[in-house]
């Protein structure tokens, strides 16, 4: 019976180690990718808003080349600050699970007005109005695509908030399970077994981090656009660093617990009078 209890205790110890590893990973995601303030800070630190503004202006300029119109028609159609506001709104919508509508009415109005003014100035007449409308819609789409990353994250938006909620529930469940396991282990194996769990978890984290990061060249990753990729790179490297830090903390805790319990035993010797 005693051996059976010990065996169960060891199995629970292994499960606790794995769950502690998963808990640490979820916690790191919780304070990074699932944290809106963290993401906004990363965008700010990597000049994401300025890069997107440059990219939108460049793409609008490119679209101009085949239109035959002058670049002056793009003057003042939007303010640089509008892009930052829209991106922040879009990011907020990801975390709340709502839909953010990029308001392009004023942009469209100003662009149409600029085109009319330009044509009037040059004494030209737009014979193909439908084509012109399609061009204006194209410019508006460039603005929208710059904000919502070409629509690639539409699928993520609807599920991101749910994933974040489930992560919270899962973290709570894991914590409870680990506590129950440690209580059982304490009774059936040894009262100071938690040091083993911490040490195993620390090494598992280090291995898992190496396994994933060894396979992908994160420093050169490019997804959708350069500016977006720069932020992704920084976030992923930061997540990896945080995992290492937490695993080091767990390692130190495990050493303290193991040292405390197994290395030294203080024996009091009464000196007889």
């Amino acid at each position: 019976m005693r051996k059976f209890k010990k065996l169960v205790g060891y199995i629970l110890g292994f499960i606790s180690s794995v769950l502690l590893t998963i808990l640490v990973l979820l916690f790191v995601f919780k304070i990074t990718i699932f944290n809106q303030n963290y993401v906004l800070q990363k965008l700010e630190d990597n000049n994401y808003y300025e890069e997107v503004t440059k990219s939108i202006k460049r793409d609008m300029g490119n679209s101009l080349m085949s239109s035959g119109l002058d670049k002056s028609i793009l003057d003042g159609i939007f303010k640089d600050g509008d892009i930052k506001v829209d991106i922040k709104g879009f990011i907020a919508s990801i975390y709340t699970g709502s839909k953010y509508k990029v308001d392009t009415d004023s942009l469209k109005k100003k662009l149409n007005s600029n085109i009319d003014e330009y044509l009037k100035e040059k004494g030209l007449e737009a014979t193909d109005k439908k084509s012109l409308e399609t061009y204006v819609d194209g410019v508006v789409k460039i603005y929208k695509d710059g904000i919502n990353i070409y629509g690639y994250l539409d699928g993520v938006i609807s599920s991101f908030a749910k994933i974040s909620t489930y992560t919270d529930m899962f973290i709570g469940f894991i914590i409870v399970f680990i506590i129950v396991c440690l209580v059982v282990i304490r009774k059936w194996v040894h009262k100071r077994y938690s040091g083993v769990v911490c040490l195993s978890s620390s090494l598992m984290l280090l291995y898992f981090r190496w396994f994933i990061y060894d396979g992908i060249d994160f420093k050169n990753i490019i997804i959708i656009s350069d500016s977006f990729s720069k932020v992704i790179r920084k976030v992923l490297i930061d997540v990896g660093d945080k995992v290492i830090i937490v695993s080091m903390v767990l390692l130190i805790i495990s050493i303290v617990l193991n040292l405390n319990n197994s290395l030294f035993k203080i024996k009091r010797i009464r000196k007889s009078l």
Partner: peptide, 11 residues
């Protein structure tokens, strides 16, 4: 009262 430290390396 003296304190004696004993190494329990096996554990």
């Amino acid at each position: 009262m003296h304190k004696k430290y004993k190494f329990k390396g096996k554990a």
